[in-house]
Design a protein around this nucleic acid. Structure first.
Lengths: 125, 125
DNA sequence: TTTAGTGTCATAATACACTATGACAGTATA
DNA sequence: TATACTGTCATAGTGTATTATGACACTAAA
């Protein structure tokens, strides 16, 4: 996997797994890749994956079953949605707004952005 | 200054100076804070500031005058606008779009974002 | 019971960001 | 000339992310 240089790998792995859950590619109760398995797949040391999983366990989005592996926790998706939404709005959005102001980006530059938001308006629930 | 944990300090200092230029708080030809001065102000080692300045010199947005200090390069603002705009659209926007889709953020959640973009539409030049 | 798969812990080594200092050459000013 | 600024370079130390391994307990299945 390709990692961003300016962000810790174990955090990017956490983000990747969280994204899989949010996209519904892994559902509650389902087993996620084993520590060793994901380490090989991402070409990373198993200790690094272990660190990501420990973090996610603390966050309550995955749970461990002795000798078997890690599983997606009940309500993981709902909790992730809540957490990530709040993080995005309070931590990331301000920086984004600032860049848009400074760079004077208008609705032509950001046409795709506006379309993406509007398409979410037409979704139910 | 408060730094983000998951991004290198010398990059954040670069971003800060670049932002000052983009906002017009420092103009072309003007002297920027000395290495030692900014180091004290940001409570950081002078070598770290030196690293940021070296990077910006390579990017051509500041220039050095022997024994005097660093100065904002001619066209620094114009070049920064071009560079940052491209970086934002190609590197950051895709990730933002992905998060908006996954988190199902609508125009109510992102009301401020839309307003910010629209206010740029009414600007001249 | 044996085998192969889980996570977990400990240890050591490497890489790099950041800090802490000292020293030196160039420039401006008193 | 003397002083006080500039940037620059070198050196050493610290903290931490990441890697590399080995060993161990637990579980499932042959």
């Amino acid at each position: 996997m390709e990692f961003n240089e300016s962000k810790n790998i174990f955090l990017q792995i956490r983000d990747w797994v969280a994204d899989q859950i949010l996209q519904g590619k892994i559902v509650a109760g389902e087993k996620i890749p084993s520590v060793r398995e994901l380490a090989v797949e991402m070409e990373v040391n198993r200790n690094t994956v272990m660190r990501s999983y420990s973090l996610m366990e603390e966050e309550g989005i995955i749970e461990n079953k002795r000798g078997i592996g890690f599983f997606v926790a009940t309500d993981a998706k709902r909790n992730l949605l809540k957490m990530q939404k709040q993080t995005f709005l309070s931590d990331e959005l301000p920086s984004i707004l600032h860049q848009i102001e400074v760079l004077k980006l208008n609705s032509v530059d950001l046409q795709i952005l506006i379309q993406t938001i509007q398409s979410n308006d037409h979704e139910n629930q």
